[in-house]
Design a protein around this nucleic acid. Sequence first.
DNA 1: CACAGTAGTGTCAAATCTGACAGCCGGTCA
DNA 2: TGACCGGCTGTCAGATTTGACACTACTGTG
Lengths: 227, 227
Amino acid sequence: MLHAIESEHTLFEMIASLARDLGFDHCCYGLRMPLPLTQPKTVMFNNYPTGWEERYQEKNYLAIDPTVQHGMRSLLPVIWSDSLFAPAPELWEDARSFGLQIGWAQASRDVNGVSGLLTLARSGESISEAELQDKERRMMWFTQVAHLEMSRLLANKMLPETSVQLSSREVEVLQWTGDGKTSAEISEILNISERTVNFHIGNAMSKLNAANKAAAVVRATMLGMLH
Amino acid sequence: MLHAIESEHTLFEMIASLARDLGFDHCCYGLRMPLPLTQPKTVMFNNYPTGWEERYQEKNYLAIDPTVQHGMRSLLPVIWSDSLFAPAPELWEDARSFGLQIGWAQASRDVNGVSGLLTLARSGESISEAELQDKERRMMWFTQVAHLEMSRLLANKMLPETSVQLSSREVEVLQWTGDGKTSAEISEILNISERTVNFHIGNAMSKLNAANKAAAVVRATMLGMLH
DNA sequence: CACAGTAGTGTCAAATCTGACAGCCGGTCA
DNA sequence: TGACCGGCTGTCAGATTTGACACTACTGTG
């Protein structure tokens, strides 16, 4: 089972193999952490034809890839098409020249704010409505499971802050802080001294490795710790 | 079409009617805004049997509802079952006594941080694997579309901040702020004066109706404005 | 050209936050 | 019982932020 796998590379092998079972010789899994805000950490695994990954990097296609853009707005799957790639004709041409003609992609997003994009691709025949009818339910399920497992394996490694545990007081204080209350106001709300509010904020800051309140509360929210 | 509908109640009528087409006499759509952190705004629409909504409110079942909890952790659909409801046997008993025996629920979450939960329920026969095979793809799609439309209609109304437009400078400055940089540091990064950094932060604060930097950057991130 | 809008800058006082040095109290565990 | 830990509190200096009053420069528009 997927959840027994302990290496992201092994996991990707497994994903690729499931993709083949679904009729796609190529697949790609990309993950993006919610932090840092200015340049979120990302990783990508794929078994695309030789040279394509380099080309993609070199041309910085990630920044304009319409499937990625779609995934940032919607969690519905998309099928590669001329209209989808209209904003990036060069990328579209280029991908086709590498044998990447037919593709299906779906994004996912979890409570930790980690987002993922699963792409299934092939050079063979196009995806018919009948094929979708037959397989899309499994494909969508596949997206979720792949995300769950990838994120489980990589979140801690790429963002150590994901694994910290905030105390209930720390959570409370950060919530009020995020709602714009000052330490003095929070001390009244919680019936503790202002010093204690600052104490908890300080503890949260060091746990989350944040330079100040603002960063602490942003990290906590982005990592889903304030639910 | 759904996207022509301009009232959330009409939209829910439409959703309920689609639910009936799928074989479920009852359905429920719940939305939760990402803000405020301390007590996020929520709405719920349903056509459950008379009295159930009151009971649900009165007992504060929302706080312990396992389908809701599941939806906060996963975007995969779940089917109501004894094991799912094991943590809340009272709720489970109670729901069944109102004729709510069979149910399917799936959560959704969009870039604005708004999350939703679609529940399809009935008192009739249980959901077979064959029925899922036949309908689940449509049901999952339904979840996404319902969310898209509900969120489009209600986000502005419930959270006016969703509709503000930040300038690119404001976004930049908030991103660095969220990463823990002080105004002085940001001024060096962006090659502008510290005063100007504070100027942009101040503008963002008033646009987002935030009392301070921390609240401004939290709101902007929660509303997906820093992508 | 006058006008409005947006980005950028300066100064200064008051409010707030951050960091460092200490101390109290109640519960747990060896 | 003594050591330890987590929640809580105090004080104080220095750094940072916030709010208010002003000002320059560039851009597009009627």
